[in-house]
């Protein structure tokens, strides 16, 4: 269980997160949605201890992320931010192998190698596993980083806009992977998503943020309604009900 209580984050005068509290139970996919600057990525980074809040605390399975040894947390929780570049020149495979670092400390065991192989297959990196990471396209690189996090094999996986840079096919495949991690392997995923429709169709729960606060929290059918979307994004949309779930036609032309 992830517990966020009373978290506040400021950058200078700007309050990015304003006394946010949230409880995420084990299992399932939770989507964080909201307009740009709503505080989704900041909240995710604070849960993943990449940022320290001015006030409040975050605990993962009862362990305070601010005080628990980092290695201990790295075996339970992994986080991937949206912009990922590495200054070091390494191959796809070498980067994926880093995902095992919290478990192996740099020397891979047979078990670690299995994880690496599986992650490479899952993300279809086999054709370029020996290529340097800096020679890949943005989307390919994104998949390499997802493979690294997958390799880390943690109960909690936090992904900040994992669909960035991905084409339609790879975006869908990534969301299927996210779903499979939750359904088949029982992992808990928290994913920041821009496209409300991906959230509607793949998440069990949607947490909507606005201006540093949580505005709405519920199942896809509760959140993906014209009234809620108006409140979250200040945008008028029609919501259609397909067999697969609610569908917000936000890109429709209005004239």
């Amino acid at each position: 269980m992830i517990e966020v209580s009373g978290v506040t984050k400021r950058y200078g005068d700007a309050t990015v997160l304003d006394n946010v509290s949230l409880t995420l139970h084990r299992g399932g996919v939770t989507a964080l949605v909201g307009a740009n600057g709503a505080g989704k990525s900041t909240l995710l980074s604070i849960i993943g201890r990449l940022l320290t809040p001015e006030a409040g605390r975050v605990s993962v399975d009862g362990l305070d992320v601010a005080t628990t040894p980092s290695t201990e947390l790295a075996r339970r929780l992994s986080i991937l931010r949206q912009e990922n570049t590495v200054a070091v020149r390494l191959t796809v495979r070498e980067l994926v192998e880093f995902g095992r670092f919290p478990h192996s400390g740099g020397r891979l065991t047979a078990n670690d190698r299995d994880h690496v192989e599986r992650a490479i297959d899952y993300l279809q990196l086999r054709p370029f596993e020996h290529r340097p990471v800096d020679q890949l396209s943005g989307g390919q690189r994104q998949r390499v980083f997802i493979a690294m996090v997958l390799c880390q094999d943690t109960d909690y996986v936090l992904l900040d806009e994992p669909l960035n840079n991905l084409d339609m096919r790879h975006a869908v495949q990534t969301m299927h992977l996210v779903r499979r991690l939750a359904t088949d392997l029982g992992k808990t995923l928290v994913v920041v998503l821009h496209d409300i429709n991906f959230a509607a169709h793949h998440a069990d729960r949607i947490v909507a943020m606005k201006d540093g606060r949580i505005l709405a929290d519920g199942t896809p059918s509760e959140i993906v309604t014209p009234a809620q979307i108006q409140a979250i994004f200040d945008l008028e949309v029609d919501v259609h009900h397909l067999d697969a779930g609610p569908f917000a036609a936000y890109f429709a032309r209005r004239d």
Binding site: G48, L50, Q152
Partner: peptide
Amino acid sequence: ALGREHSTNLG
């Protein structure tokens, strides 16, 4: 060498 965020994530 991977950077602050990746190393924090990796413990």
